[in-house]
Amino acid sequence: MDISPLVYYGSIFVLAIFVGYYVVWSVTPALHTPLMSVTNAISAVIIVGAIIAMGTESSGTSGTISKIVSFFALIFASVNIFGGFLVTQRMLEMYKKKVKKDVE
């Protein structure tokens, strides 16, 4: 008997929540702002859904609307990916500067 996708992905979801719980508690409070911006960036992996919808051979009115809608999803998710990772990087660079200075 095959396990249903809901239970399969549900199990992974539950385990990932536990992983998230322990990993996030290990984040230093000083980096909570970068944590928020990087989680913004990675949650934009939803871009995968947008690309799948863009990449199917669809027909009819709803197929066309579906493509238009997913094109916008693609734009929004890209803003999130680029904005999130780059702003995180910019913040983390500021922390780096000081490590160097201390060594000097």
């Binding site: 992974i12 990932a16 929540i17 998230g20 719980y21 996030v24 508690w25 909570h32 989680t39 990675i42």
Partner: peptide, 15 residues
Amino acid sequence: LVITGALVGSSGAIL
């Protein structure tokens, strides 16, 4: 998506 969503969800909840 499932893994990332769970991570981000628990991160926000902890914060």
